[in-house]
Write a protein that binds this DNA or RNA. Structure first.
Ligand SMILES: [Mn+2]
Ligand SMILES: [Mn+2]
Ligand SMILES: [Mn+2]
Ligand SMILES: [Mn+2]
Lengths: 219, 219
DNA sequence: ACCTATTTTTAGACTTATCTAAATATATTT
DNA sequence: AAATATATTTAGATAAGTCTAAAAATAGGT
């Protein structure tokens, strides 16, 4: 079994590997983990000894097969618990992340399996992120950022990139939620802001917003 | 907020205070926590500095008001989670304790409240132990050990003292469960074993068994 | 190719929670 | 009351995870 800290590092490396395919740098990891580069180096050495990562000095770090499997298990638990909190315990989607950060470290395969079954084997968490199944498989939807859409293009809102409470509450306030249809009416070259159509309403949003909303284009 | 270790010590002191009203001894605590007396002394000092316990050297330790409140909160969470696992996730009562040992340390008042509501504010956990409410109140049932009953006396099985998997599975195998009526048909002075009547069945049980079953006498 | 800036690692320290071994206090027996 | 046994505390060590400051390696610019 691995410590909370080890599991958090594995999760962080997993998320950063999308952006840093050549190897996740010490500084990137320090930033993500909100800690110092020297602490990261220490932890990477430990993970490397446990064969959870592949590491060569100064070359960045990659997950091993075991490391990836472990990271996905933690992510699976995180997202299942988030779904549980929203669907069964009346939590809002902006309140669940921090609690899931704790619950994701509970060690019991049976608990995870039974929770999954109890919830009806959900495919996506409250933020639109895919929930890996018991074998670690999950589908990566072909989504894009709203900010990448051009004028007149439209699609369905399927996820959020930022899942901070501030951002999610902003979306709530403006009645933007997953599953809704969004059409780009105007796009300002100057500041990247957009005028969008959502449920017959017109709404102007900054680029920071459109940069954090995932859209699925309908074919 | 307190560490897992601190919370576990508080819980242990809480449980031992019933037996050691004058103060819980270092050795008793070491035994309960499965650790060394020197470690206990170290931890007691820390708890004392945080005003969770009242401690004078060589005089044993007692919970402060804050310490008791904290211990009861942890116990509340432990028992709510055990109830959840049995009632919602199809766990057997012998499988839930170790997982609840982990879940009891999750920090979120809202989670505890909502879980309690979701479960319908249960009053007892799967082993018959009372679940404290949000204010920390719980009823201590006037139960006694089956071993204290005399020949011809009877009552309802309302709890287990030992909740080890071994004991609980023994009870399952012999169809003994909470809520069932038990009558003492014979009691051996020699070894304390008993012949009991439970659901028209006669069963001979050792003193070790009758010493770990709580009975409520019907008035 | 060299100098400089940036990144990464190392060295040494701190905290928490644990341990063993030794010292000290309390309890029990004679 | 003294001797002995038991319980408890102290001293010093260890491991995990973190930090600061300094050293070493790499990357970039001329
Ligand atoms: Mn989350
Ligand atoms: Mn999520
Ligand atoms: Mn339990
Ligand atoms: Mn219980």
């Amino acid at each position: 079994m691995f410590s909370f800290s080890e599991e958090n590092y594995l999760k962080a490396i997993f998320h950063l590997e999308r952006k840093y395919q050549a190897g996740v740098s010490t500084n990137a990891l320090a930033e993500e983990m909100d800690t110092k580069a020297s602490s990261v180096t220490d932890m990477i050495k430990k993970l490397s000894e446990k064969e959870l990562v592949v590491y060569k000095k100064y070359q960045g770090v990659k997950l091993s097969e075991l490391g990836r499997k472990t990271a996905v298990e933690v992510i699976r638990k995180h997202r299942l618990w988030e779904y549980f909190l929203v669907e069964k315990l009346n939590f809002n989607w902006d309140e669940v992340h921090d609690i899931a950060e704790q619950l994701e470290h509970i060690k019991s395969e049976k608990l995870t399996r039974e929770l999954d079954k109890f919830l009806g084997f959900p495919k996506r968490d409250p933020h639109g992120d895919p929930i890996p199944d018991a074998e670690g498989n999950f589908s990566v939807a072909n989504k894009m950022l709203l900010s990448e859409l051009e004028k007149t293009e439209q699609g369905i809102c399927v996820g959020v990139k930022d899942s901070s409470s501030d951002f999610l509450r902003f979306l709530d306030k403006n009645n933007i939620s997953l599953g809704k249809d969004i059409k780009v009416l105007e796009k300002e070259a100057f500041d990247g802001s957009m005028l969008i159509l959502i449920e017959e309403r017109q709404l102007r949003i900054s680029q920071l917003i459109s940069n954090n909303l995932y859209i699925k284009i309908q074919q």
